[in-house]
């Protein structure tokens, strides 16, 4: 795994002296979409925040292009990893354009002034995400689905090889959930982005992700959907008497 673009070795995450989940080990290549799934409270968000260096790791190693994550300066980090978090943005009075423009901060001068290249990147993002019509709107005027697209566009404007998203499909209906994950897949495959997102939507991840990391608090299996089905990892995810996994259809059913 060490020679992969993003590699994680024997990682333990948590807060202070409390370990939430340990023994996490996986590697991702450029252009891969990876879903992190697991039951509530298992530590998906804590893992994502640790991977983005928003909080310190407890043990193990995270590397980008074989460089340790801890060795990167905050500026270098901002040019390598962008995030979409569940935190509500503090000021919803920003216009869509202003919000996306903030994604260019790692590249701007000390005053935050945008140059021609920044403006081009921002316009490309507006086109790519088909949100040009929204650019003058304030964030509080947007629907949940629109805001999520805008936040992903902001991450895209940050122009990082890695994008990490915490629960990007929460609060969305099925159509918008599929839409967002497909969008992420396109960004990974067409633009070579390495994308990692946490989700409760295991079936969606099974159908659309290149790789899946299952946090189960023990082995934390990682691999392609087929590999994980073969290993029986999905079958062991929930108590059998409550939810059963059907390996043929890749779906879960409620036990009778």
């Amino acid at each position: 795994m060490k020679d992969q673009f993003l590699s994680v070795e024997k990682l333990a995450v948590g807060y202070g002296k409390t370990t939430i989940v340990k023994n996490i080990q996986f590697g991702l290549n450029e252009g891969e979409l990876c879903g992190v799934v697991g039951i509530n409270g298992i530590g998906k968000s804590t893992l994502l925040r640790t991977l983005a260096r928003l909080q310190p790791k407890l043990q193990g190693e995270i590397s980008i292009r074989q460089n340790k994550l801890t060795a990167l300066s905050s500026q270098e980090l901002a040019k390598n990893i962008s995030v979409v978090l569940t935190d509500p943005i503090a000021t919803r009075n920003l216009t869509v354009l202003e919000l996306i423009a903030l994604g260019r901060q790692p590249y701007t001068n000390w005053m935050g002034r945008l140059n021609a290249n920044d403006v081009t990147k921002i316009n490309e993002c507006l086109q790519l995400f088909q949100i040009e019509a929204l650019k003058g709107k304030k964030c509080y005027e947007l629907s949940d689905g629109q805001l999520q697209r805008v936040l992903i566009a902001r991450a895209m404007a940050q122009d990082t090889p890695i994008i990490m998203l915490d629960e990007p499909t929460t609060h969305l209906d099925l159509y918008h959930k599929v839409h967002i994950v497909k969008l992420l897949k396109d960004l990974a495959h067409d633009f070579g982005k390495t994308i990692l997102f946490t989700s409760h939507e295991i079936e969606l991840a099974i159908q659309l992700c290149d790789k899946i990391l299952i946090l189960d608090g023990a082995e934390n299996p990682f691999g392609t959907t087929a590999e994980l089905i073969d290993k029986g990892s999905f079958t062991r995810l929930f108590p059998h008497e409550v939810v059963q996994f059907d390996p043929n259809s890749g779906t879960f059913k409620i036990s009778k």
Binding site: L54, L77, K79, V83, I89, T91, L94, Q105, G112
Partner: peptide
Amino acid sequence: LFLVKYLNAYLLGENYAKSLGVP
């Protein structure tokens, strides 16, 4: 004046500001 860029990043909240390279 020298904080202007960081202040704008703070508008998104501390975690986003950090992810944008704000110390």
